[in-house]
Computed example of a mutant assay.
Amino acid sequence: MKLIKFTIEEMDICFSALAYMFAELEAREKYKSLLLDINVEFPHKNLDIFSDAIKTFQNAENMFLNFEIVKTLSKLEQWNNLKEYSQTKESEVYYNAFIDKITGNIDKLKDISLIEFADNKQAFLSFVNGNLRALINSTDKKRFAYWNGSTWSLLTDEETQIIYGDFIQKCNIELSAGQGSLKYEDWLELAKKITKWDTGRNTKEALDKIKRESSRIIDLKKYDLNNNIICSNDGKIINLNTGEIKNATRNDMILFTSEYNLVNKENSIKFMSEKMSIYLDIIGNERLDFILDLIAYKMLNRSLQSAIFMIGTGATGKSTFKQIAREIFKSESSTIPYDYMTTMNRGNSDASRDDILASLDNKKIAFCSEGEKEKIISSAKFKKYYRMQMNLLEKPMRG
Rank of each mutant, 00 (worst) to 15 (best):
M1R: 10
L3M: 11
E10L: 07
I13D: 08
C14N: 08
S16M: 07
A19G: 13
E26I: 11
A27C: 15
A27V: 03
A27T: 06
K30L: 13
Y31V: 00
S33F: 01
L34I: 04
L35W: 00
L36R: 12
F42E: 03
P43R: 01
K45A: 14
N46K: 15
I49Y: 09
S51W: 03
K55A: 12
K55Y: 05
Q58S: 13
E61V: 01
M63D: 09
F64E: 06
F64H: 09
F64W: 07
L65A: 12
E68M: 08
L73F: 09
K83W: 06
Y85L: 14
Y94W: 04
N96I: 14
N96P: 01
D100P: 03
K101M: 08
K101G: 08
T103M: 05
I106P: 06
K108N: 11
L109V: 12
K110G: 09
S113W: 05
N120G: 01
F124I: 02
L125I: 03
G130D: 01
R133C: 07
A134M: 08
N137H: 12
R143S: 04
F144P: 07
S150V: 09
T151S: 12
S153I: 14
L154W: 00
L155F: 11
E159W: 05
E159D: 10
I163A: 02
K170F: 02
I173L: 07
W187T: 02
I194E: 08
T195C: 09
G200C: 11
G200I: 14
N202E: 11
T203W: 02
K204M: 10
E205Y: 10
D208F: 09
S214P: 09
S215V: 14
R216K: 13
D219P: 10
D224N: 15
L225C: 05
S232D: 09
D234Y: 10
K236C: 11
T242C: 07
G243N: 07
I245W: 09
T249F: 01
N251E: 15
D252T: 10
F271G: 01
S273T: 07
I282W: 08
F290D: 04
L294I: 02
N301V: 04
S303T: 15
S303G: 03
Q305Y: 04
A307L: 11
M310P: 04
M310R: 01
G312D: 05
A315Y: 12
G317E: 06
K318W: 05
T320G: 08
F321K: 01
Q323M: 07
I324G: 00
R326P: 04
S331W: 09
S331T: 13
S334E: 13
I336Q: 06
Y340D: 00
T342P: 06
N345T: 03
G347E: 06
L357G: 14
A358F: 13
A358E: 12
S359G: 12
L360H: 04
D361M: 11
A366H: 06
F367T: 03
S369L: 10
G371C: 05
K375F: 02
F382T: 05
Y385R: 08
K395I: 13
G399K: 12
